[in-house]
Design a protein around this nucleic acid. Sequence first.
DNA 1: CAAAATTGTTAGACACGTCTAACAATTATA
DNA 2: TATAATTGTTAGACGTGTCTAACAATTTTG
Lengths: 165, 165
Amino acid sequence: MVRQEAQREQSASMEDYLEAIAMLGEGKKVVKVKQISEMLRVKMPSVTSALKKLSEQELVEHERYGHIKLTPQGDRVARDVICRHEALTRFFAQALGIDRETAEEDACKIEHVISPPSMERLVKFVEFLEACPLGGANFPSRYEYYLEHGELPQRCSKRGVGKGK
Amino acid sequence: MVRQEAQREQSASMEDYLEAIAMLGEGKKVVKVKQISEMLRVKMPSVTSALKKLSEQELVEHERYGHIKLTPQGDRVARDVICRHEALTRFFAQALGIDRETAEEDACKIEHVISPPSMERLVKFVEFLEACPLGGANFPSRYEYYLEHGELPQRCSKRGVGKGK
DNA sequence: CAAAATTGTTAGACACGTCTAACAATTATA
DNA sequence: TATAATTGTTAGACGTGTCTAACAATTTTG
């Protein structure tokens, strides 16, 4: 019995389709080609052709004029992308203070290219900022001060902590 | 006098070519097709065709079998990409603690897709971490602790700062 | 300096993902 | 329910960027 070779990675486009289908299908809602096309801002024929491709890879179930549904495999991939998307959005919006819309846009692009180790660290980093009192509470405020004035709140240092550069 | 319409953005590929040419040309060294092809891991004909395209846009000077050089415009674009690249590398390597190689790889991808506002904030963020005693010195160590134990150094609050594993 | 090795170019195929135009199925509605 | 409106599909063009194969120029070296 020959084990199936590991799925080759999906392209950014295909990941977008999977992601869109997963989001539109939340709560087992019926997913339509039109919706996908609007969400991804592509024309319907592009969706049809993507669905064909994804069906061949068994990531999506789709029959002519019929239902659209992720297979368990497809769902796994989609969840993964969504997870990266959310973590990145949190990073840009919460940690960096970027406006939500831009944060989402950047997340949409970066989610397709970031490496697993960086993604993992980024997630931990966001968790850290959220969990750490100095990180979560003081950190952002000092950061904001820095953003505004280009320097730290004076006497921020209690003595050149660590080694000066 | 009609102002030239803003240059449409370059594709990730074209940005890579400009970046490679700039790096290989540092210190006015002569740039060769072969080098570019090796640096970007593409075959030489791909380079030739990219050079043709970039020449038409006046971002590169190139004559058949001859010299390869960025125009001032091309240099501007290249510097820009390199700047993003470096900031991203610093972020991943120094702030997140990712190994240099992975950090570079991620920077290479992300530099082409990140938005200007996010880029700007990210740069400031890295500067902040480097400048702020609590950020630069203690922050990383507490972060490391968190990475290892999944929770903050107990009583991280105000006295617990500065310790470390 | 002439042959050999290397580097660079041209031509053309191909994969990918998009689009428009034309047509088909489905759904809404008068 | 017949017709109109909407949604979905097919066919095929196109742009981008890659590649291989064949050939041309340049450079090295015996």
